[in-house]
């Protein structure tokens, strides 16, 4: 097991999982505070259609299979943003409520994506490299290449710079968009940036956690971090640390036990972290609250 730690592939996989988990965890704080957990789940489920769709399109155009994140992440972004636009359109132009249209979009995009995936895999002359495409359902960090790592790195840098530079605006827009509009800020544009950051926080982790469980890597670190601090800045840092730590541990467990998907392994770690935080955090934890009630 110690040999594994010095293995180049394992190092790469664990490192990129850590970076991914940190970015998703930090960006997830905004989704958590804006009560957009369900939106996050729809984004991640919908993205399977873009992943499989772009893989297939690439094959049609070039005759070759390509599972690089440089192709599949843009695909995931296109599909998830399309799902968001359609949800918005349905909510605005019909009497269907927002949560119902989110649910419908999730079903349509995820279902169509799975159908396309099955169709590609059952095809009589299979596309080269299609094996492993189904790993995007539950995540397979072991498939990470160096070029994938650069993609993850760029998304991390871009979103961190956005967070740092626009910190005060993002804080205001998350807390009180109505007041922000009253101050004359163009709320629509800032909402778009927040949505883009949410999409980045999700698509970055699809290879590692998979579309089905990705929402856990987005929301669980934020839920745990909120228990320990009352400052937004500290909450985001802590969520990044917890997300990075859990993703790295999950990836390592999956590397040690061949065939264990990374997503479930990460979720097990996250569950422990959330459980401890919900029970034991001072002030907000269930146990500490009970003690306050008794005294």
């Amino acid at each position: 097991m110690l040999e594994l730690l010095t293995d180049y592939t394992v190092q790469l996989v664990v490192l990129s999982s850590a970076v991914t988990g940190a970015t998703s965890g930090a960006l997830g704080c905004f989704a958590y505070l804006r009560r957009q957990s369900l939106v996050g789940d729809v984004i991640s489920h919908s993205s399977i259609l873009g992943i499989v769709g772009f893989f297939w399109l690439w094959f049609v155009l070039t005759g070759d299979g390509n599972k690089s994140l440089w192709l599949l992440i843009p695909g995931a972004m296109v599909a998830s943003i399309a799902a968001m636009i359609l949800t918005q359109w349905i909510t605005n132009s019909t009497k269907i409520k927002a949560d119902a249209s989110l649910g419908v979009m999730l079903a349509i995009f995820f279902g169509t994506g799975l159908t396309l995936l099955r169709w590609i895999q059952r095809s009589s002359n299979p596309i080269p490299g299609q094996a492993g495409l189904e790993d995007y359902l539950f995540g397979m960090a072991a498939a990470t290449t160096l070029s994938d790592f650069w993609m993850i790195g760029i998304l991390t840098v871009v979103s961190s710079v956005c967070l740092f530079v626009c910190w005060y605006r993002l804080k205001l827009l998350t807390f009180d968009p109505g007041y922000a509009a009253g101050l004359g800020l163009s709320v629509g544009r800032w909402e778009l940036l927040l949505l883009s950051l949410l999409v980045i926080g999700i698509v970055i982790g699809l290879q590692i956690a998979g579309v089905v469980l990705m929402v856990a890597l987005l929301i669980a670190p934020a839920s745990a971090a909120r228990q320990w601090t009352n400052s937004l800045g500290k909450m985001i840092l802590l969520a990044g640390l917890l997300g990075g730590g859990c993703a790295a541990s999950g990836a390592f467990m999956s590397a040690v036990r061949k065939g264990l998907p990374t997503g479930p392994a990460i979720v097990v770690c996250l569950t422990l972290v959330v459980l401890v935080s919900v029970l034991f955090a001072p002030g907000r934890g269930v146990l500490s609250r009970r003690r306050t009630l008794v005294t």
Binding site: T174, T229, N230, M235
Partner: peptide
């Protein structure tokens, strides 16, 4: 704005 238009549990 109306007081209940925001989440008062927000970490600020």
């Amino acid at each position: 704005p109306q007081r209940n238009s925001v989440d008062w549990d927000f970490p600020i």
